[in-house]
Amino acid sequence: MQVQLTINGEKHEADVEPRLLLVHLIRDVLRLTGTHIGCDTTHCGACTVLLEGRAVKSCTLFAVQASGKQLMTVEGLEQDGKLHPLQEGFMAEHGLQCGYCTPGMLMTSVAFLEKHPKPSEDDIRRAISGNLCRCTGYVNIVKAVQHAAAALQGGA
């Protein structure tokens, strides 16, 4: 089946089998490998992308379902060579060790901060509860999101 979708502002077209998962379209067909596959069982959130602005697990969606839709992947965060405040936050606060969960953490946090610009620590912990990290113990990830929230509030 023919699918047409916009990822990070760029139009893409592909001929896919209906059973192709969105994450495989993104990674294997379109070669946007920033989006990761962690568990492949809807648990870990490493494959999180934004579908029409909502953070979803791209391993639990068929590519055909995204036809005609706007998507954003981790590659879309950087603008004109400038990192997104969340990416800056993860660097400044050491919000990653192995980095495997990071693309998912970033995408979940982008959508979350859009809706909740002044979150409490508890809000952040709930928001990322569908994203698993096995390295950090989450403390620095929470700090990274707080860092970005403050930067975004400051008009950065």
Binding site: G45, T48, A55, G130
Partner: peptide, 9 residues
């Protein structure tokens, strides 16, 4: 129900 990402779908 499930987690926030699953609840978005």
């Amino acid at each position: 129900i499930a987690d926030p990402l699953v609840r978005n779908m």
